[in-house]
Design a protein around this nucleic acid. Structure first.
Length: 618
RNA sequence: GCCGGCGUAGCUCAGCGGUAGAGCAGCUGUUUCGUAAACAGCAGGUCCUCGGUUCGAAUCCGAGCGUCGGCUCCA
């Protein structure tokens, strides 16, 4: 689903899941506790049945997998002799429409377990038989007899199903089949690959149209498309999964980075930089070599094995331990814009949102246990401040101790209490995800909704009680002269800069807020004789730190404006005889608003001021 | 990694067995213009790579690479 945005924890921050970035299950939506079933689910699931009916008509020997309702629609998995084509989808749609028009009732029936098994076996449906067997096994393992299996029939089609359904096929609203994709049976790579057909269905035509429009709009805003159009970055097969940053993209990057640095300097962070190429013994000590090896790029040199670092944290401990630390030094806040490499599987790479090489606005904060609550609250403030620059509303999810966790349970309990208090004090909008923390840290994940209502997991704050402190034996000398264990907080607020920029491009459809736009203003001389004055004006503005360009090409003014509009430049400053005579300029905004002429100095002042304000709405 | 689609000029795409096309962008010239496209000309391509079929391959077949949609939702 284009709209069911996937969480990519591996790039969001540090150590998302247990066992070092094991892929996390569940869409962000689900994680946010939105599992309350959609009222449209019965209809969506019913549509899946109707689709299966249609597929069976066209391919009588099709084997059926499962066909649940999902956000926005439904899918059904099939095993077929040949690959489906777009043409097949239209034919399936037609048959579905016929079934809806026929208004078949959905009729529930049930039969004893054995009979159900035989029923589907006779119909050549091994996947259904497997499900029935599994249900029986679960029951027997629980010391119960296998329950009767239930089926639903509409028209000629009978499917193993627990329901619920709508009354009859006529209740199924406007629908459309979207795509066909490969999907492993039960999501397991050692099982057969089935063909999955995705469809969407809604109560009204308007809702369906809106959904399809949003898909179109998402395509239009796709950062991979806009990245080329706006000349921000490109990808090349010589380094799959890694962006080449063009001058404009790099300018955007640096603007975001310096904004974050400014916050960090204000908050007492100290920036560090650690090597990218690191001997494997470090990764053996951190545990990555055992648990994360397949995601690390290895480098052999002079008989030694190194790896490109997939994260910064272990190395930051070397700086921590470079001398004895006093309780007076804590909190010790090390930030690092380190370049990381993770060997993501080739099939999962995607634009800036799933890459092999990226940079995090990473930091590790070492605190005494008594400082934890205050630090968390401050970090929540950082998140709010940074997201405010883009008009994004962060939502928080607090993930607590999983069953399998390392470390002192009392410490866990205390840390969780402090995190919860900090969230409450900060009046944060949060949900609790019980037992969803990592095995060494409770954490706070941060989500936003973008302009299209899509949910993205962004930042993460992890309160590491065990990993860095224990494994790397971090200590400080406390007030009484004894050695004590600090707590390490991993935090990344943008997450990966690559991914963050990708999301920003889509959120703003390329029209970045004035303060971070790669080109903030274009001076447009009307005729050649205005070029010199245009360069003069640009120099005045540029001297105030505003990113301005002059379009002194031989095009007509209209064309220069069009070009600037396409590039989503916030301000166009048209300069002709009238303006030059009065040393003024009349700004035109990319929204098409024609502003009053102002003097050059005043204009430069205003732009410089707006640039510093970092408002999301300019 | 696996399944399926796609890979032709910088970009968007047409051509789908007889030796390559359009629009935009680029370059040159003319134009010097008042708020979203001035006009004309020119130039531009190992048709992703390698191998095969064929008298002949961008076009058909195979492999590789890249890219896109997916591979969690458990009757």
């Amino acid at each position: 689903m284009a709209d069911a945005v996937k969480v990519n924890p591996a790039e969001v921050g540090e150590e998302p899941a247990d066992e070092f970035h094991a892929p996390e299950r569940g869409s962000a939506d689900e994680l946010m506790g939105a599992e309350i079933g959609d009222p449209l689910d019965p209809m969506r699931h019913s549509a899946a049945h109707v689709m299966a009916e249609a597929v069976l008509e066209l391919f009588p020997d099709a084997r059926l997998g499962i066909g649940p309702a999902i956000e926005g629609g439904f899918y059904y998995d099939f095993e077929l002799r040949r690959a489906l084509t777009p043409d097949d989808l239209s034919r399936i749609e037609e048959r579905m429409a016929a079934s809806v028009a026929a208004d078949h009732r959905f009729v529930r029936d049930e039969m004893p377990h054995e009979e159900g098994r035989r029923f589907f076996e006779e119909r050549g449906q091994p996947y259904k038989v497997e499900i029935i067997d599994d249900l029986a096994k679960v029951a027997r393992d629980g010391g119960r007899e296998p329950a009767r299996v239930s089926t639903f029939q509409h028209g000629p089609f009978i499917d193993l199903c627990r329901g619920p359904h709508v009354e009859s096929t006529a209740r199924i609203g406007p629908f459309k089949l979207l795509t066909v994709a490969g999907a492993y049976w039960r999501g397991r790579e050692d099982r057969p690959m089935l063909q999955r057909i995705y469809g969407t269905v809604w109560s009204t035509q308007e809702e369906l149209d809106l959904y399809l429009w949003r898909r179109q709009e998402a395509k239009r805003r796709d950062h991979r498309r806009l990245g080329v159009q706006l000349d921000l970055f490109s990808f090349h097969d010589v380094s799959p999964g890694s962006a080449f940053w063009h001058p404009k993209g790099q300018r955007l990057w640096r603007t975001l980075e310096s904004a974050m640095r400014e916050v960090q300097e204000r908050r007492g962070y100290q920036e560090i930089s650690t090597p990218i190429l690191v001997h494997r013994k470090l990764w053996q000590q951190s545990g990555h070599w055992d648990l994360y090896a397949e995601n690390m790029f290895r480098v052999e040199a002079e008989g030694q094995t190194f790896s490109l670092k997939p994260m910064n944290c272990p190395e930051s401990t070397y700086i921590y331990r470079s001398r004895v630390r006093s309780y007076r030094e804590l909190p010790l806040r090390f930030n690092e814009y380190g370049r990381l490499h993770r060997n993501e599987r080739s099939g999962t790479l995607s634009g800036l949102t799933r890459v092999r090489q990226f940079v995090q606005d990473d930091a590790h904060v070492y605190v005494r246990p008594d400082q934890l609550g205050e630090e968390i609250e401050a970090l929540l403030g950082e998140v709010r401040e940074a997201y405010g620059w883009f008009g994004l509303e962060p939502r928080f999810a607090f993930a607590t101790k999983p069953d399998k966790a390392l470390g002192d349970p009392a410490l866990w309990e205390k840390a969780e209490g402090l995190i919860r208090e900090a969230l409450d004090r900060a009046r944060a909008n949060y949900v609790v995800k019980p037992k969803d923390g990592t095995f060494y840290a409770p954490k706070i994940d941060i989500y936003i909704d973008d302009a299209l209502g899509r949910e993205w997991q962004m930042a993460t704050i992890q309160v590491d009680l065990v990993m860095l402190p224990e494994r790397f034996d971090l200590t400080y000398i406390d007030e009484s002269g004894r050695s004590a264990r600090p707590i390490a907080i991993h935090r990344a607020i943008y997450g990966s800069l690559e991914r963050f920029i990708g999301i920003l491009v889509e959120h703003f459809a390329g029209a970045f807020p004035f303060w971070c736009a790669p080109v903030q203003a274009v001076v447009i001389p009307i005729a050649d004789r205005h070029n010199e004055a245009a360069r003069e004006l640009a120099a005045v503005i540029r001297s105030r730190g505003v990113r301005v360009e002059v379009d002194d090409s031989s095009s007509r003014m209209q064309n220069k404006i069009r070009l600037a509009q396409e590039q989503k430049v916030p301000y166009m400053l048209v300069l002709g005889d009238r303006e030059i005579g009065a040393r003024t300029a009349a700004p035109r905004t990319r929204a098409g608003e024609q502003q009053e002429p102002v003097s050059w100095d005043e204009l430069a002042d205003r732009l410089a001021r707006e640039s510093v304000e970092r408002r999301p709405d300019r």
